Amino acid sequence: MTTSDPGPDTPEDALSERDRAVLAVERQSWSGPGAKERAIREQLGISPTRYYQLLNALLDDHRALAEDPVTVNRLRRIRDARRARR
């Protein structure tokens, strides 16, 4: 690797802490209605609407796929199935 080739572990290739937190919330299981939305507000300090906007963008981000392929691929399958039903 040359000095002009920063490699895959450089800051511009890393997800932000917020992006990692969004993926972490998505990995959790939720006990009942409203629990996830409450956790989004408490843990991330954002609205559920903003959370889902960020999550949807992450699903198309190669860095998110590299960070958490199981979660990202699962969510992509769900998203694709919903789109196919429309």
Rank of each mutant, 00 (worst) to 15 (best):
H62Y: 05
V72S: 05
R76P: 10
I46W: 03
L55Q: 09
S47P: 09
V70R: 12
N73R: 15
R76A: 07
N56D: 15
L44E: 08
N73K: 14
Y51A: 04
R76H: 07
L65N: 06
Q53D: 15
A66T: 08
L65S: 05
R50F: 11
H62L: 00
E67K: 00
Q53M: 11
N56G: 13
L54F: 05
D60Y: 02
L58H: 06
P69M: 04
Y51V: 10
I46H: 04
Y52K: 03
R76Y: 08
N73L: 14
D60Q: 10
E67A: 06
A57N: 14
A57E: 15
L44P: 03
R50K: 10
L44M: 06
D61H: 06
P69K: 03
L58M: 12
R50Q: 13
N56T: 15
T71D: 08
I46P: 04
E42V: 09
R63D: 11
A64D: 04
R63Y: 10
N73S: 15
L54Y: 09
Q53T: 14
N73H: 12
L55K: 09
Q43K: 04
L75H: 13
A57M: 10
P48F: 04
V70M: 11
R50W: 12
V72N: 07
R74W: 12
E42Q: 08
L59S: 08
T49C: 04
T71N: 08
N73E: 15
Y51N: 13
L75A: 09
D60F: 00
L75V: 03
N56C: 09
R63E: 12
L54A: 10
A64K: 02
H62K: 05
Q53Y: 13
S47W: 10
R74K: 14
A57F: 06
L44K: 03
E42A: 11
A64M: 01
R63N: 12
L55S: 11
P69S: 09
T71H: 03
D61G: 02
D68C: 10
H62S: 05
E67L: 00
Y52G: 07
P48C: 02
N56R: 10
A57D: 15
D68S: 13
D60M: 04
L58K: 01
L65D: 05
P48R: 03
S47G: 14
H62F: 00
L59E: 11
D61S: 05
Q43P: 00
P48K: 04
V70C: 05
D61Y: 01
Y52V: 08
R76V: 11
E67R: 00
L54Q: 15
Y52M: 09
R63T: 05
S47L: 11
Y52Q: 05
Q53R: 12
A57R: 14
A57P: 06
L75Q: 14
R74H: 15
L55M: 10
Q53W: 07
L55T: 01
N56L: 10
